[in-house]
Amino acid sequence: MRLMIVIFLMVCGSAFATEDRYEFANAERENTFRELTHELRCPKCQNQNIADSDAVVAKDLRDKVLSLVNEGKSKDEVIDYMIDRYGYFVHYQPPVTPATIILWVLPIFIVVVGFGFIVFRQKKASSKQTWSEQDEQLLNKLIKQYQRREQ
């Protein structure tokens, strides 16, 4: 029985090893490759990353990323390499440019304006309420009236 388990585990191990056909010099490069293939976008099957897509171009990009990583290129260098060829579209993280700055500014703007509006309205509402001497006398009178009634 024990032998069976050992054999079973060995078979499992080798099955896993054949599935991963990419080879790396060290774990750091493997990590970089994994991150890149999840961050780069397939130009053909849009809304899939290149790790996920089966399109020919996605495979070509994966192979290119692999060879660049194995040459010792850093993550940013590989991303720049791809952007040079496929434009900003190929990276899931848009850069801050005059055209895209609105993505960062607009949410902050809306929150600031929203809170500003609330504060402004409350101040306005509280300054509108006037409380005169007559109101005070009337209030006191009413309180006394009700107190008497309760007794």
Partner: peptide
Amino acid sequence: KRTLALDLGVSG
């Protein structure tokens, strides 16, 4: 091997 295609940013 689609090397020029990759350098040109061809997707298909």
